[in-house]
Simulated scan of single mutants.
Amino acid sequence: MTIGSSGSNPARRDLNLADMSPAYFALVMATGIVSLAASMMEHPNLALALFVLNIGQYAVLWLLYALRAWRYPRRFFGDMVAHLAGPGYFTTVAGTGILASQFMILRENIAAGAALWALAVVLWVCLTYTIFTAFTVRREKPTLDKGINGGWLLAVVATQALSVSTALLAARIDQPYRLELNLMALSMWLWGGMLYIWMMSLIFYRYAFFRFSPGDLAPPYWINMGAMAISTLAGSLLILNAPHAPYLMSLLPFLKGFTVFYWATGTWWIPMLLLLGIWRYGYERFPFEYDPLYWGAVFPLGMYAACTWQMDRAMEFGFLSALPHAFLYIALAAWTVTFVGMVRSLARGLPLHARG
């Protein structure tokens, strides 16, 4: 991955790095969940290839973020406390949690998985209380229609990614920490659900009562569905962990009910988002070109495939098996198109920032 143009203009390279999207770790999120979904549905070679690629992407993105923080600290930390840009940093938490899950599931590497999980915990604590404290105390704030979009739900995704990786870690270690980790996974799952209710209420209000232009429908609006999909995945893992934690067993009806509730809510969003996409690109003729934010649309597709497969297994339905396979192929197609667009964009020296 290059930073700037194919020419030798250092100013252009610096500009691209300065404007780099805070949400670029959605690339790791999308690649990781497609890899995990492929593994679930018995495509081991594809899962492993995407896993190896994801390790490289993760390392490169941390290098770029570190360079941006060093060379442009005002821009880096200024974006962190901006209402539209700040939530994009939660992709670092979700991407780290998903890569931790890949290590644990695909390679059974508990040490690497636990190390990444610990990093995700630290990132979650730092970003959650930095970003939302800054939003609360700043004197000048945007109006609701200018200050919120689907990207805010990345805070939910980050929380649930931590729940998922915690539940996976709990299933792979013995006492004395198994019970504590399951409680942490449960707590993060519940907090993520509450956070979704708060944020989705504001986002839906913005949908219905403020002017909506094609430019407002940025790809992170797919996180409306993706946040519910990863909540479904976390709930399914808690159900599977219940035999090893008595308090989860006592909550089993509650866990199953809310897991299906999350899945049904995420499923409801799919036709709505498709219709809005047709309106944006078909009716309004909004230009379709690569944007880093499109990784925020690939991720929910892969997550829906993974969560549906896992829920079908945890709930012992047995009749949803075709749906996750279909969404895996859809997610893989979307990932391929977006990845090719990213490579072409970087080869042409286009900036790494989000245009939306």
Rank of each mutant, 00 (worst) to 15 (best):
I3R: 07
I3T: 11
S5N: 14
D14P: 01
A18K: 15
S21Y: 15
A23G: 10
A23R: 03
Y24D: 14
Y24H: 15
A26P: 11
V28E: 09
A30I: 05
T31E: 09
G32V: 03
S35Q: 05
P44F: 09
N45A: 15
N45Y: 15
L50Q: 10
I55P: 11
L61A: 15
W62L: 14
L64N: 07
Y65A: 11
Y65G: 03
A69P: 00
W70P: 01
R71P: 02
Y72E: 00
P73T: 00
D79H: 06
G86R: 06
P87M: 09
T91M: 06
T91K: 04
L99D: 00
S101P: 01
F103K: 03
M104Q: 13
M104N: 07
E108D: 15
I110D: 08
W117H: 09
A118H: 10
V121L: 13
V122R: 02
L123Q: 06
T128R: 12
I131N: 09
I131E: 11
T133G: 04
F135P: 06
V137M: 05
R138S: 06
L144G: 02
G151Q: 10
V156M: 08
V156F: 07
V156D: 13
V157H: 04
Q160G: 09
Q160C: 09
V164R: 03
A167W: 03
A170Q: 10
Y177E: 15
L179C: 08
E180A: 15
L181G: 04
L181H: 07
L183C: 13
L195N: 07
I197D: 11
I197V: 15
M199G: 13
M199C: 10
F204N: 12
R206L: 04
F209D: 08
R211S: 12
R211F: 05
F212Y: 14
S213N: 11
G215W: 06
D216C: 05
L217N: 10
Y221I: 13
W222Y: 14
M228A: 15
A229P: 08
A229L: 01
T232N: 00
L233Q: 04
L233R: 00
A245Q: 08
A245R: 03
L251D: 05
P253S: 03
G257P: 05
F258N: 14
W263G: 01
A264R: 13
T265Y: 13
W268A: 13
I270Y: 12
I270D: 04
G277V: 05
R280E: 04
E289C: 07
D291H: 02
D291C: 07
L293S: 15
Y294N: 10
W295M: 02
V298H: 08
L301E: 06
Y304W: 13
Y304F: 15
A305P: 07
D312T: 03
R313C: 03
G318A: 03
G318I: 06
L323R: 07
H325V: 12
H325S: 06
Y329T: 03
A333C: 07
A334H: 08
W335N: 02
T336H: 01
T336K: 03
T336L: 14
V337D: 09
V340K: 05
V340H: 04
R344L: 13
S345E: 00
G349S: 01
G349I: 01
P351D: 05
L352I: 01
A354M: 00
A354V: 01
R355A: 06
R355D: 09
